[in-house]
Every structure is written in C-alpha cells, then in structure tokens.
Design a protein around this nucleic acid. Structure first.
Lengths: 247, 247
DNA sequence: TGTGTAATTTTGGTCAACCAATTAAACGGG
DNA sequence: CCCGTTTAATTGGTTGACCAAAATTACACA
C-alpha cells in the first residue's frame, strides 16, 4: 500500500499529455498571444503547433471547460473566458497543480458540506423531504442487522439530507466525494458504530429538521460523523485517494 | 435572456447520448445482469448493444468514473464499484438528475466553503500563506483604483485563503465554482463595493488568520461576502448557470 | 496433473478521415 | 458602395481502423 502511494506520487509528477497542452495554452496567455475573450486556435492547429494529437487537445480543452476557463461552441470554436490575465494564470496554475487528496481532507469536506446541507434542509425542507428521510430511517431500523443494507440506508438517509438542502451545487459536490468515502469505508471495514446509536442519531436529526432547527440539526450531524472523522484522523490519515479531476 | 433560459431548460430535458448510455447501464444493474464489482462489457460491445458510438460510450464512462461509480483500467476493462445495489441505483439516479443550478446556490455554496476554508486557514496557516495573503492585499491597495486589477487581486486573495486551508478537496471545489461567479460578476457589473471597505475587511481577515482565530476569521469572511449574497438573492435569483458536470 | 511459456484474443487509448454546423468570403444586383 | 444570396472554408463532433498493453487460452514438459 505504501508502494502504491509512491508509484502514484511519481505518476503525478509526470504530467499527462493534456496537462502539457494546458501548460502550453498558459504560455500563450502569458506571452500575450492569447487574450481574455479571444477564440483559441482551432483544435487541429493546436495539435499541429503543440505536437500532440487532437485527442489530447480535446481532453485538455474539456478539462479547461469543466473549470470554466474556456467555453467550447460546436463548429464555432473555443473561447477563452474574459477574466483578467492574473486571474486566468492563477486558475491555470491551480488546474495544473491539482493534487491527489488524502482521505482526511475528503471526510473533512464532507462534514462541512453535510453540516450545512442539513442546516439548509431544516430551513427549506418539504413534506416530501421529511417523508423520504423517515423512509430511509425506517429501512435502516428494519435492516439494522444486515451490515450491507444498513450502510445502504444510511447512505440513502444522507442523500435525503442533500436533496432537502435544495441546493444543487452542494448536492453535486457531495456526489463527487461520497462514493469514494463509502468505498474506502467498506474496504477498510473498520467502522463498527452500534446501529442503535445510529438509529437514535438519525431520529434526532429528523426531529430537528421537522422542528426547522438548523443549528441543532447541524450540530447533531457533526456528532454523527465524528466516528468517520476520528477514523480518518487516526487510522487512515495518509491514505491517498485520487485526483479530484477528470485527468 | 429569459429566452436563453427557456432553451436551456428544454435542452436539459433532452437527454444527451451519454446520459442515455448511463440510463441503460443503470438498467443492467437493476436487472441483475451487472453486479457490484463486475467488469462492464467492453466499450465496443456496449456500443453495439446500446446503438451508440464508442465516443458516447466513453463519454458516459468518463462521467461515471468522475463520480466514483466505475473505474476504467487501460487495456483491462471497466469495473463497477463494489457498493450495494441500492446505493449504486441512488448514485446513478443522482447523476442522471444533475440539474442546472442557479446563481444563488453557487454563491451560497461558495460562502459555505470559504467560511470553512478561512477557519481552517487560521488553524493551519504557514508563514508563506500569510505572506501570500499580505501580498495580494498590498496589490489590492496599490491598484484599488483600477476596476479590473482590484477584482483580480481580490480573487488572488481568496485563492490564498483556499490554499491556506491545506485541504485540496475544498480548493478543488472552489476552483470549479469561482470562475463562473467571477464571470457573472464581471458581466452583470453590479458590484460596486467601496474598495476601502474591502481593504479594511481584508486586513481584518488577515489579522484573524495571524491570530489563529478561526471563528473570527470565519465570521469576517461571512460579512465580506454578504454583498454577493444579497446581490444573488435580489437581482440574480433565477439566473441559471451551467450543469456542474462534464456533460 | 500442475506449472511455465507462447500464442491468441480482448481491451482501452489514439489516430486520420469524414460529417454536418457555423462562419467567412465571393459575387451579383440595385 | 451596400446588401442579400451563394459558395467555400473552417470548425468541433463522430466514426472506423489501428496500436499496444493486459488478460485469456493453448500447449508442452516434468
């Protein structure tokens, strides 16, 4: 496992072709040859100029579009966004320096997003949201003896919370990080929280949401995930995951 | 602009080919034909079975890999993650139901992430972090009369905060949402916060970070972004942005 | 019967060519 | 000279073919 991390670290240091393309685009901007708002040279031209195939060019542009740096218009071209040079350079540096992240950062960010998701859920929840949470909770109780199913319904419960926040950005972000957490959870098999404790905590959170008490719901959620936080801090502190990007 | 939103809404209802592929993969899982941990049929087979080209298959798999649902191994195949059927179905439903998001959600999430980023920055900051914040702050003062440069250095300041959190997941998430916010900011040209107010707020935040006072830093950041929050709530409430996904 | 090696097949990644949408240039008439 | 129409060029998206790595199968020998 340590060897795995070493190999991944080395790979991270070898830039992918797409990252090399991004670096060259960054140089075009720094040289003034490409200005904010400009259309980029055509994919074929970039391929020829940079010495990479169009597949790598397209992968690089897709990545830049994902981060809002360019906008691709079918059959029309690719436009650099209109931010100023310093901001563009900063963003491009950040894209190029995206790191693998450690499990602790993953879990810490999940905690932050979920604490706020449940606070918003308490404020904004609908009857459907409460019913969905109740249903997941009842299913958790029903299958609390089944190690796999109870994790499944715990996860469903957390998805209900995200849904109840009525903030699609928070939902989307949680979606990108929850699967990795769950996968590592299941793989390490080190979480053995008493299901009755979970049942109690779920019930308290539902009640706080019903009462529209965001602060209470938020602090209950914080307590709820302390188990994973502690786990991440002590046993899996240096566990690397993947780069949170498309490359 | 209202017409723009209408057209985008209609487009959102037409599933992309990649989403149709994802839906078919979901059906394979629901039918039991594809189980957690299984290798998916080869790309060529999926293309043939589903009636889409390999480009669309690969785009769908790339999206699923981004969300942690599958793992693609070059020259070996694509593996479905080992989560249970309910969780997989839930995740796939969420992926298929990713929505366009409104500017308010974007800004609200930014506020949440940055409040926590600066709290962590106060706890974890290094001397380099403080120096970087000071430098951005000094540049903001220097160019406070230049509308473009001061936004640029304000952005640099916020990037320093993200960097100082020492949490790559938070950094990465802020990176995906900040450009859109800045672009809309510049386009709507409706923020006219007095630069001297910003200078004062920046100085207070730096001081709180120096003092390692996370709570203070967090609440100062909250005050700092209230302008954008108010703007988002009143003037741009229904402004749709893009789908926060690769499709 | 088990093991090691070689051959074959399968696989995802990449490429050049082609398709169709968009833009730019050319042309003709007023 | 300007404007509308037609033609040509440019563009990103898609396709089928090819490449090389990985996995599977077949075969030979102890």
């Amino acid at each position: 496992m340590m060897e795995d991390n070493f190999i991944r670290l080395m790979k991270a240091q070898q830039k992918s072709p797409a990252d090399e393309v991004i670096n060259k685009i960054k140089e075009l901007i720094e040289s003034g040859e490409l200005k904010p708002g400009d259309r980029l040279p055509a994919e074929r031209k970039l391929a020829s100029d940079f010495g990479f195939g169009r597949t790598h060019i397209r992968e690089a542009l897709q990545k830049l579009e994902f981060y809002g740096i360019v906008k691709t218009l079918p059959q029309s071209g690719t436009i650099l966004n209109g931010l100023d040079i310093n901001s563009l350079n900063g963003l491009l540096s950040d894209v190029l320096n995206l790191q693998s992240y450690d499990f602790y950062s993953l879990v810490e960010t999940r905690c932050i997003l979920e604490m706020n998701a449940i606070r918003l859920c308490a404020e904004r929840r609908t009857e459907e949201d409460i019913e969905a949470m109740e249903k997941s909770h009842q299913n958790f109780i029903k299958f609390h003896n089944d190690e796999i199913l109870r994790v499944s319904y715990d996860f469903a419960f957390h998805r209900n919370i995200a849904e109840g926040s009525h903030n699609p950005v928070i939902k989307s972000m949680l979606m990108t990080i929850i699967p990795d957490i769950l996968i590592i959870y299941n793989k390490e098999r080190v979480c053995n929280t008493d299901p009755f404790v979970v049942i109690k905590e779920h019930a308290e959170m539902i009640n706080a949401v019903k009462m529209q008490n965001g602060e209470l719901a938020s602090s209950l959620l914080y307590q709820h995930v302390q188990g994973v936080m502690t786990l991440a801090r002590t046993k899996l502190e240096n566990l690397k995951v993947k780069s949170l990007s498309m490359a």
